[in-house]
Simulated assay, not measured.
Amino acid sequence: MDSLGALNAFVQAAEARSFTGAGRHLGVSSSAIGKAVARLEERLGVRLFHRSTRSITLTPEGARFLERCRRIFSEMEAAEQEIAQTQGVPRGRLRISMPLAGMLMMPTVSAFMRAYPEVELDLDFTDRLVDIIDEGFDGVVRAGEVSDSRLMSRTLGVFRLKLVASPGYLAMRGTPQRPEALIDHACLQHRFATNGKLESWPLAAGVKEIDLPNTAVVNTIEPLIHMAEQGLGIACLPDFALRRQFRDGTLVAVLEPYVQHQGVFRMLWPSSRHLSPKLRVFVDFMAQNLFAD
Rank of each mutant, 00 (worst) to 15 (best):
R150T: 00
V37F: 05
V37I: 15
R95Q: 06
R244K: 14
R95W: 03
R173M: 15
S200V: 08
G45E: 09
L188K: 05
I132M: 04
L188W: 09
P99Y: 02
R39C: 04
A165Y: 09
S18T: 04
D284V: 01
M1C: 08
I133Y: 01
I183G: 08
L94V: 02
E209K: 14
V46R: 11
Q81L: 02
V11E: 08
T250F: 12
R47I: 03
R154D: 06
R70D: 00
Q260F: 10
I221C: 04
G233W: 12
D127R: 03
F285D: 03
A78L: 13
L279W: 06
G174I: 08
K278R: 15
L121F: 08
R70P: 01
L237I: 08
Q87L: 15
E222Y: 12
F10W: 08
F10I: 00
P90L: 02
S18L: 06
G174Y: 13
S153W: 06
R128A: 12
L237T: 05
A235I: 06
P117I: 02
T250D: 11
K197D: 13
F246H: 09
I132G: 00
D138M: 01
G233Q: 07
R70F: 01
P107E: 05
C69V: 12
R266Y: 03
D134M: 07
L7M: 13
F192T: 04
A204M: 12
D134F: 04
A32L: 10
C69F: 05
G144D: 07
G21D: 06
S30H: 15
D184M: 11
